[in-house]
């Protein structure tokens, strides 16, 4: 189990981050944003699941730490979604190396540590946030008439925009189906101070 996950992570890193292949991903906006970056985050995530201790949800600090970790991951991914930095990563190998390292270590890894520590409301909040982020990016890429990145062409922007909207739709469905049709049986009515006292 342990070696299986680390093998997958290593494989992903090899495919996504090692030069000739890395340049191939980065040669296209869609491949760069929607394939290379997710692979890097996923690799970090898998590594994270190997090193993160299992959470003790009774402890408040654990939950707060979870929120902080997921926030860090969000900021890191958001940063690399900014066209200016995407451009920079294409233009300079040094920036690209930083991109690869931060996406693995500051996005994927903290995500694996933080996500299991989030309560259901915080998870829902992150999920909803991710959906609207994808819609926002989709709208921007679809309707922005000029080139956003120096390195990529306008027609690729439109494809990326549609793909982003597709991702938003997928995230929406993936969230909605278990929430609406989940199979757990629930629990009996609560007995707490706010509970109804039936006559």
């Amino acid at each position: 189990m342990l070696s299986y996950r680390s093998l997958v992570a290593a494989g992903l890193l090899l495919i996504a981050a090692v030069p000739p292949l890395a340049w191939w991903w980065e040669a296209s906006l869609v491949r760069h944003m929607l394939m290379q970056i997710p692979m890097l985050v996923l690799a970090g995530f898998l590594l994270g699941t190997l090193v993160a201790p299992s959470p003790d949800l009774g402890v408040r600090e654990e939950r707060a730490g979870g929120i902080a970790a997921v926030l860090l991951a969000t900021f890191c991914v958001t940063f690399w979604m900014i066209p200016r930095w995407l451009d920079a990563a294409v233009a300079s190998h040094r920036v690209d190396a930083i991109k690869i390292m931060t996406l693995v270590l500051l996005a994927g890894l903290p995500l694996a540590w933080g996500w299991p520590r989030l309560g259901p409301v915080a998870r829902g909040f992150v999920w909803v946030q991710a959906i609207s982020m994808a819609i926002v990016l989709g709208l921007l890429y679809l309707t922005f008439p000029n080139r956003l990145c120096n390195s990529y062409l306008v027609n690729e922007q439109a494809i990326l925009g549609i793909a982003m909207l597709g991702i938003a739709g997928f995230l929406g469905l993936a969230g909605a189906v278990p929430v609406l049709f989940g199979a757990n049986n629930g629990s009996p009515a609560p007995r707490h101070p706010g509970a109804r006292v039936d006559p």
Binding site: P178, V179, N184, G186, S187
Partner: peptide, 16 residues
């Protein structure tokens, strides 16, 4: 989201 969490905890899903 808190409503949703509580409803799912009690009834199993929002559909229910």
């Amino acid at each position: 989201l808190d409503f949703g969490r509580a409803l799912i905890a009690r009834y199993g899903s929002l559909g229910r």
